[in-house]
């Protein structure tokens, strides 16, 4: 019998869900990423998708027996413990926190008993980890928000949150990759595009990468926006 720290749920004849018991952590994320990379090279697997503490494994036509696939998962997981982990790249995201781009900054700061400057300082001081992408195409689930910035979502979601809005909702912070409805507090905006269906892959970031926010003024925001259109500005990983 192989001992593994996850339960295997056969959700569908072609999809297995692996769920870990432990709470999400950087250590767990590294394991998920490492296991995902390893499984994607198996003939029995077409692709893997991720959650905070789960992996969905989509099986290929070569996976003829579920018990064999399960045995393979246990065997591969136990070889994973000794492999080296990759750590992802670091992206610095320019964010304008000025009032025109941050309609909820003042109310969020008041609710947290802080000044807007303190909120910006705390939000830009942290480095966030991309756990996975979901909700909307290009929406990064980030961990690492300072607990001092936790604030319950708005009671009434906005019907139209603009593309690029940087927001806080509950224990999370994130960037809206496209205009959409949303209930998070909008504290800034980035001119960068987090989802471009004309590019392959369509997002520059991926699970396991690191994100930090750099404050810019509205003049710099406009400049980057123009340079993105002319092709002069290209996002590249930091350091």
């Amino acid at each position: 019998m192989n001992l593994v720290p996850f339960r295997v749920i056969v959700l569908h004849p072609k999809a297995l869900l692996l769920e870990w018991e432990q709470e999400p952590s950087d250590q767990l994320l590294e394991k998920l990423l490492g296991f995902k990379r390893l499984l994607q090279n198996q003939d029995e697997v077409t692709r893997c998708t991720m959650g905070y503490k789960s992996l969905m494994i989509h099986l290929s036509e070569k996976a003829t027996s579920l018990s064999k696939v399960k045995a393979l998962l246990y065997k591969r997981y136990n070889t994973l413990e000794i492999t080296e982990f990759q750590s992802g790249v670091h992206w610095k995201i320019p964010v304008c926190y000025e009032e025109t781009h941050a309609p909820d900054l003042v109310t969020l700061a008041q609710a947290l008993n802080k000044s807007p400057e303190e909120v910006i300082q705390l939000h830009t001081a942290a480095t966030y980890r991309v756990c996975f992408i979901g909700f909307l195409p290009g929406f990064l689930y980030l961990s690492g928000l300072n607990p001092e910035l936790f604030l319950a979502r708005k009671e009434k979601p906005l019907l139209k949150v603009p593309k690029g809005a940087v927001a806080i909702g509950g224990k999370q912070t994130g960037i809206y990759p496209n205009e959409s409805p949303g209930g998070w507090h909008l504290i800034g905006k980035t001119p960068l595009s987090f989802f471009d269906p004309k590019k392959i892959p369509p997002c520059f970031a991926q699970a396991g990468d690191w994100i930090s926010f750099e404050p810019i003024n509205s003049k710099a925001y406009l400049k980057i926006q123009e340079e993105l259109i002319s092709g002069k500005f290209k996002i590249s990983p930091h350091g």
Partner: peptide, 10 residues
């Protein structure tokens, strides 16, 4: 669209 679910694509 099968290939891009890890980028949030339905």
């Amino acid at each position: 669209r099968f290939e891009y679910q890890e980028y949030g694509v339905p």
